[in-house]
Amino acid sequence: MLRIAVDFGLMVLIWMVQLLIYPGFEFLAASTFHKWHRKYARNMTFIVAPMMFVQVFLAGYFIIYKPGLQLWNISYAILVALTWISTFLIFIPLHKKLDDEPHNVTVCRKLTHRNWLRVILWTAIVILDVALLIEL
């Protein structure tokens, strides 16, 4: 149940980021963007990071302690790993660029367009969770 709760929470959160928060970056006043973005990034980290760490822990736990479900567990671990890789290789650098160049509309749009990758990944994780529940 913890896995489903965390995965569903991250999926809902990423959809909100995709449909509301990232597109809204373009409409923030340039004079306050930098201050708001730094606060947003810090506070979002406090919410997202613990949930992502739980996902990694659960991915390892299920691979080690639920060997009868290896295909499901390896698929889950790969999807979780891809969320981490994309976050560190794509999204953290884009947010850093927004810190360096506040209210850069081109970077804001890249963030929104590229974030579809994480939307797909976290949605796929929840679909995998539901499929596993149906299978069991």
Rank of each mutant, 00 (worst) to 15 (best):
I47H: 01
L133S: 07
A81M: 13
I90H: 00
G60A: 11
T112R: 15
D99Y: 04
I14R: 02
F33C: 03
Q55F: 02
I125M: 12
L20R: 14
G9W: 01
L111A: 11
V80L: 04
R118Y: 02
H103S: 08
I92H: 01
W116I: 15
M11I: 01
E101P: 02
V54E: 01
G9S: 15
Y65H: 15
V80H: 11
K35W: 00
P67K: 11
P102C: 08
F46R: 00
F88M: 05
V107G: 05
I127C: 13
A5G: 11
E135N: 14
N104T: 05
F88W: 11
K97A: 15
V80I: 13
K35N: 01
E26Y: 04
A41M: 04
Y22Q: 10
F46Y: 12
L10D: 00
L133Y: 09
T87N: 06
E26T: 07
H37C: 04
T83W: 00
R114Y: 14
A41V: 06
L13Y: 09
I120Q: 03
M51Q: 10
P50Y: 11
H34L: 05
V12T: 12
S86V: 01
H34N: 04
G9L: 05
H34W: 00
I92Y: 03
Y76C: 11
I92W: 01
L133D: 08
W36H: 06
V80R: 07
L94C: 08
H37T: 00
L58W: 05
D129I: 13
F25G: 04
I63Q: 03
L111R: 11
I64A: 13
D100E: 15
L128N: 08
L117H: 07
R42H: 10
I134H: 12
N104M: 03
V17T: 13
A131C: 15
F91N: 04
L121V: 07
M44K: 00
R109D: 06
H95P: 06
V119I: 10
N73L: 06
M52E: 01
T106E: 15
Q18Y: 10
F88A: 07
L71P: 02
R38M: 05
L121N: 03
F62V: 06
H113Q: 14
T83V: 14
Y22H: 11
F27L: 13
V56I: 14
V6N: 02
Q55G: 06
A124Y: 06
Y61T: 03
A59F: 05
A30Q: 10
N43G: 08
T83I: 10
V6E: 02
A29W: 04
T112G: 05
V105F: 08
